[in-house]
Simulated scan of single mutants.
Amino acid sequence: MENFALIGFAIIVGYVLQKLHIFPEETPNILNKFIIYISLPAIILLQVPKLNFSFDILVPAIISWLVMGLSAVLVIVISKMFNWSKSITGSLLLVAILTNSSIMGIPIINAYLGEEALPYVLIYDQLGTFIALAVYGAFVTAYYSSNSSISSKVIIQKILTFPSFLALLIALLFLGQSFPPLLTSILTTFANTLIPVALVAVGLQLQFKLPKNDIKPLSIALIIKLAIAPLIAYIITITFGWNNLAGQVSIFEAGMAPMITAGAMASMAGLAPRLSIAIVGYGILISFITTAVISKLII
């Protein structure tokens, strides 16, 4: 219950601050940069070394990548059908694909499936969403934020210098190891800033009145993220016989709201910033309803 309250309260705080014009207009961009350059790398360095690999725990990771891959293909096909700009396409390839697997996933799945489900949440999050954010997210921002053709060399360079990807490479070197208590404490402090800072940033940028041109891509993005993605996950679990707790967690995770950090990344890269933040904001609100529907169907 506390997590649900924090989510709602932080977004409201950001929205009120926006309406009162207390902070400068560039504040959301500054907060987004703080998330991408400090909070997110801290979480990766803190959590990834804790992983132990086995096939059983890879089920959520496998499902996450299949869901993201198929959803991305769908976004590209629909974008071509409607002849959307490179900016809108790039925005949807981030916010309609990357799921809010930890900030929303942990409290919601804990509420519906209990604490025994949380290890699978972390697998989906760390081996699926986190790696996708670092590699796929960096690729999308590098390619779609460019106004001209961009070489593979430049894309690779941007990926390799992206903060979360660098943090991932470092974290993988310490698999199965523990950092000294002092370093762990510092990383934990920075990692704990992600949720409140990210949610306040969403509130600061949340717009309920959108231009008519944004309504169609917003609607399609939310349909893909909140309805089609969990349906894909459900079909995968049925096909491979993964009708267990790991499969249930994966279906829930696939249907979570769009990732807040993906919205921050899209906004910072200039990929339809207003649309990107709107998709995240509306997605968070609507996901409380859609995840309740998912719980009725699979539990």
Rank of each mutant, 00 (worst) to 15 (best):
161 T>D: 06
183 L>E: 06
290 T>F: 01
265 M>V: 03
224 I>C: 05
216 K>C: 04
211 P>V: 03
207 Q>N: 15
157 Q>W: 10
153 K>Y: 11
192 N>K: 14
156 I>L: 15
237 T>W: 04
286 I>R: 05
195 I>S: 13
183 L>I: 15
153 K>S: 13
294 I>A: 02
209 K>S: 13
197 V>L: 13
260 I>T: 13
204 L>V: 11
288 F>E: 06
283 G>S: 09
272 A>C: 10
262 A>L: 08
249 V>D: 04
257 A>V: 09
270 G>A: 11
240 F>P: 12
233 A>Q: 02
193 T>Y: 12
250 S>E: 07
278 A>K: 00
224 I>E: 01
225 K>P: 01
275 L>P: 01
159 I>F: 08
180 P>Q: 09
280 V>F: 07
165 F>V: 08
239 T>Y: 14
268 M>G: 10
194 L>H: 04
215 I>G: 02
158 K>T: 07
230 P>V: 07
200 V>G: 03
246 A>P: 01
172 L>A: 13
180 P>E: 12
212 K>W: 10
226 L>K: 04
263 G>F: 01
208 F>D: 03
166 L>I: 15
173 L>S: 15
212 K>F: 12
165 F>G: 03
250 S>R: 08
211 P>Y: 02
183 L>H: 04
247 G>L: 05
171 A>Q: 10
198 A>V: 07
191 A>T: 09
226 L>N: 07
225 K>M: 07
186 I>M: 07
190 F>L: 15
242 W>Q: 11
242 W>D: 08
171 A>D: 11
185 S>M: 09
281 G>V: 05
233 A>L: 02
274 R>N: 14
218 L>W: 00
230 P>H: 09
159 I>E: 05
271 L>W: 08
178 S>N: 13
251 I>G: 01
189 T>G: 11
186 I>A: 09
188 T>N: 15
193 T>L: 15
151 S>A: 06
200 V>I: 15
185 S>P: 03
277 I>S: 12
201 A>G: 11
164 S>A: 15
198 A>M: 06
169 L>V: 15
181 P>Y: 02
159 I>K: 07
177 Q>H: 13
214 D>I: 00
244 N>D: 15
252 F>M: 09
224 I>Q: 02
225 K>N: 08
261 T>Q: 14
173 L>F: 15
162 F>K: 04
170 I>K: 02
255 G>R: 02
275 L>V: 04
221 A>L: 06
242 W>G: 06
